[in-house]
């Protein structure tokens, strides 16, 4: 929509007495949504699919560059979960749970995939390549571009583990607790340390100073 004057016309909001609302999952906790899904609510499934499937594909892609394999795994995962409705256990964070499932599904299926030719290291750690989005202007404009590139480069020189943790923390918005569970750390502080150290190693690049 553009800034046509017409959009600022009169405001009409009519409250309603008897209306069956379609449930708004955005305001519900993950736990409640998952429970609804487990009870067979198709709207809940629709919501989960719509919210997570694209991110799930992106996450799976970190473990296999075979797009069809990742798609098959996502499909299998959702078919499996739908089949198990009624007996699924509680889930506190749907994103973290689905990530864990897809990671397991991919490593299970990849064993059968002769077509997979990536280095052994990618197998277990994932690639987790990063970029620094260009539309964000890091403060000092003159050196911004080079800092930008430098930051992107340094980020991609971190270990895959560090990159994974940073992406889960910043892009996926997971908590330290969820990251620890997903990365199979026994203690939450391990995730905290991992991220802190990664960031501290980039500190000079991140500071808003002008004289570089």
């Amino acid at each position: 929509m553009n800034k046509n004057p017409k959009s600022s016309a009169e405001k009409t909001v009519v409250p309603l007495r008897h209306f069956e609302t379609i449930k708004i999952y955005e305001d519900k906790s993950d736990q409640e949504i998952w429970k609804s899904f487990n009870l067979g609510d198709e709207t809940a499934f629709n919501y989960i699919y719509r919210t997570y499937v694209k991110d799930l594909y992106r996450y799976g892609w970190q473990y296999s560059k075979d797009g069809d394999l990742v798609k098959d795994c996502i499909q299998n995962l959702f078919i499996y979960l739908r089949r198990k409705r009624g007996e699924l256990s509680e889930v506190a964070n749907i994103r973290a749970y689905l990530y864990r499932c897809i990671q397991a599904e991919i490593s299970k299926n990849r064993k059968n995939e002769a077509r997979f030719r990536h280095a052994e290291a990618d197998y277990h750690e994932g690639t987790f390549a990063m970029e620094v989005s260009p539309e964000t202007s890091l403060i000092d404009s003159e050196s911004a571009l080079s800092r930008h590139e430098l930051l992107a480069k340094s980020l991609n020189q971190l270990t895959p583990k560090q990159r994974k943790a940073l992406l889960l923390f910043y892009e996926d918005g997971l908590s330290y607790r969820e990251i620890s569970a997903l990365m199979e750390f026994s203690e939450v502080k391990t995730a905290r340390k991992l991220i802190y150290r990664a960031i501290a190693s980039l500190k000079d690049l991140l500071k808003p100073t002008t004289n570089r």
Binding site: K54, R58, A129, L138, L167, Y170, E171
Partner: peptide
């Protein structure tokens, strides 16, 4: 910094 760090957009569904 938080907003600008992203997955590299190599592949999307």
């Amino acid at each position: 910094v938080v907003r600008s760090i992203r997955y590299s957009p190599e592949s999307a569904l």
